[in-house]
Simulated assay, not measured.
Amino acid sequence: MPTDDPTSYTATPPSLRNGRGARDYLATRSDPGFAQRRIAQCEARVRKWARALALRDADAEQGLAKAREDLAHWREVVALAKANGSTFWSAADFTAGDYVQFDGVWYVVVHVNRRSLTIPEPLDPSTPLADQDRTARTCTRPYDRVQDRSPAEAVNNDRQGPSSP
């Protein structure tokens, strides 16, 4: 049931007044990447309220309880998504040289970081993946934005990169 508390995960935004907003809202809230980002935000709120509690802030106990409740909810959402077959990517899934898909475009993984992947900066999408210069400018993308992955060995024979589904 929706509440008036804007920080609550059960709060209903005004965009739910029309059908498209409701569809977009529900699709976003069931997206595994969205859930992962919300967990990170909730963990930060728990740490903030724990620090406030240590300073004997009067509102800290209530804030900490609410933050823990939200965190438990989003962990439940992630567990349900995993049970339904959603993929949650992490550093353990990638090595340098693999191929990764972001926003429908395949990139070579230059470096694997704890929270993100380093890929060549998308300058010219017409350049074949195998010909992308790994020393060119790079950028990072978080794991919750990964759409697909292909190991380097599977792509070695295909100079254009993995085929799109």
Rank of each mutant, 00 (worst) to 15 (best):
G85Y: 03
A50P: 10
D70M: 08
A54P: 07
L64G: 04
I39P: 03
V112R: 06
D59L: 13
D98S: 03
A72W: 04
Q62N: 13
K66H: 05
W49C: 06
A60N: 06
H73V: 11
A81M: 14
V108Q: 12
A44W: 07
E61V: 13
S90V: 02
F94P: 02
A50S: 15
A67Q: 01
L55H: 10
Y107H: 14
A60I: 02
S90N: 08
W74V: 01
A58S: 15
T95Y: 04
G104Y: 03
Q101M: 09
D103V: 01
R45W: 12
L53S: 15
A91K: 12
L64H: 05
R45E: 15
K48V: 11
E69L: 00
A72Q: 09
C42F: 10
A67F: 02
V46P: 08
A96G: 04
D70Y: 06
R115E: 15
W106K: 02
D57W: 08
N84G: 12
E61H: 14
D93A: 05
Y99S: 06
A81L: 14
I39D: 11
A67H: 04
D59A: 14
A44I: 06
V100Y: 02
R75E: 08
W74I: 02
L53K: 13
A52F: 13
V77F: 08
Q101V: 07
G63N: 10
Y99I: 00
E61G: 09
L53F: 05
V46H: 05
A52W: 08
V109N: 02
A58I: 10
V77I: 14
A81C: 08
G97E: 01
S86Y: 02
Q101Y: 04
L71E: 07
L64T: 04
T95V: 11
K82L: 11
T95S: 13
Y107W: 07
F88M: 09
E43I: 00
D59K: 11
L55G: 12
F94N: 01
A67R: 01
E69I: 00
R115S: 12
L80F: 09
V105Q: 12
D103L: 09
S90I: 03
R51H: 13
A50M: 12
T95W: 03
D93N: 11
G97K: 02
V78C: 07
D70C: 00
L71C: 10
R68L: 11
G104N: 08
A72K: 11
A58T: 13
A81V: 05
G97A: 02
D59W: 05
W106E: 00
G63K: 03
A79C: 05
W106H: 06
Y99D: 06
V77K: 05
H111V: 07
R56A: 14
K66G: 12
N84A: 12
A58F: 14
F94V: 03
A58Q: 13
W49S: 09
H73M: 10
A91P: 02
V110W: 04
R114H: 14
F102P: 00
V100A: 04
D103C: 00
N84R: 11
A96T: 04
A92S: 09
Q41E: 15
K48S: 14
